[in-house]
């Protein structure tokens, strides 16, 4: 069965990508219906008082309908002078709440996480997450698993080529009696050129989208606020290639002493159009 999926990916034509450059912030643009996007990302982080790490993760993002995108994650990490571990999975869903385009477009984000204490991809910062949490060796941090429900209200707007997005974050650990945790992410981005050139080109300015994002924790229901929280500011860049590939890069800087000094992220993604319809046709459904 995985072989059939790989074959379908090979047969499905790549779609001209127009991917967001954000790593943490979400805008309101969902995956096109029937399209599968395969994404590989990685975070390199420096660790105050400990060993640096690289945390790669794989995302499979599918456009179920024009108003629903579902996504599956597999997380892992390598801590230098320690070990390489698989750290769990996530299942994310995003629902467009209003049809059409509005001044501010709300999208509801709901994610279930089944990840160990050794997870370091830093896809979101929540509650009182601080850099010193990552000092625990993989052997002991990997022994406990968190079952978390994560919700975001994605508020996003496009104006004169600019995208503005704000994501308040709410997280509940389902396996413990912990209070709700809060966080935020916000970003702004713009293509380097708004008009497309008539020719097919790799280095045209419209293929590059640059921006900046900021994200961090906001404490818990019991201690809401900025004390003992970490925050990051990160310039971001996406390069959308005509072949359907997108290259992503970002360098994040910790903004206080509870943050990692540096988070360097990069990634590759490719969108396969019509994947769902080909899969449906394979099993006798209507293509």
């Amino acid at each position: 069965m995985p072989g059939a999926a790989v074959l379908l990916c090979a047969l499905a034509p790549p779609l001209g990508a127009q991917e967001s450059p954000y790593f943490v912030t979400y805008d309101h643009h969902l995956e096109e219906p029937g399209s599968l996007e395969v994404e590989y990302f990685s975070t390199f982080g420096t660790q105050p008082g400990g060993n640096a790490f690289i945390a790669p993760w794989l995302e499979l993002e599918y456009g179920a309908t024009a108003w629903w995108t579902t996504e599956f994650y597999l997380d892992s990490q390598t801590t230098f002078h320690d070990s390489t571990v698989f750290t769990g999975f996530r299942w994310e869903n995003r629902f467009r709440l209003l049809a059409g385009e509005h001044r501010v477009n709300p999208v509801l984000y709901v994610e279930y996480e089944n990840i160990t204490g050794a997870d370091k991809i830093l896809k979101e910062i929540e509650g009182n997450d601080v850099a010193s949490d990552f000092l625990e060796p993989n052997g002991s941090a990997g022994r406990y698993t968190n079952h978390e429900l994560e919700m975001k209200l994605i508020l996003s707007s496009d104006w004169k080529g600019w995208n503005f997005a704000v994501n308040p974050l709410f997280v509940k650990n389902l396996g413990a009696n912990d209070p709700w945790e809060f966080g935020y992410a916000a970003g702004v981005s713009r293509p380097l050129a708004l008009e497309a050139s008539p020719r097919r080109c790799m280095f045209c300015r419209e293929n590059f989208i640059a921006g900046v994002e900021m994200y961090g924790g906001l404490g818990t229901a019991g201690s809401f606020g900025l004390p003992s929280t970490s925050h990051y500011l990160a310039p971001v860049l996406a390069w959308n290639l005509p072949s359907g590939w997108t290259v992503h890069a970002s360098t994040g800087f910790g903004l206080n002493s509870d943050s990692h000094g540096l988070l360097v992220r990069w990634g590759l993604s490719r969108e396969f159009s019509g994947f769902g319809h080909m899969l449906s046709a394979m099993f006798g459904g209507k293509p």
Partner: peptide, 23 residues
């Protein structure tokens, strides 16, 4: 193109900048 026909499966294409939608 900007607003799509979400109920019939066409997504909004507002992620393309306005000049590209006019193109």
């Amino acid at each position: 193109i900007t607003n799509g026909v979400v109920r019939r499966g066409m997504p909004p294409w507002s992620k393309l900048p306005e000049p590209q939608r006019w193109q």
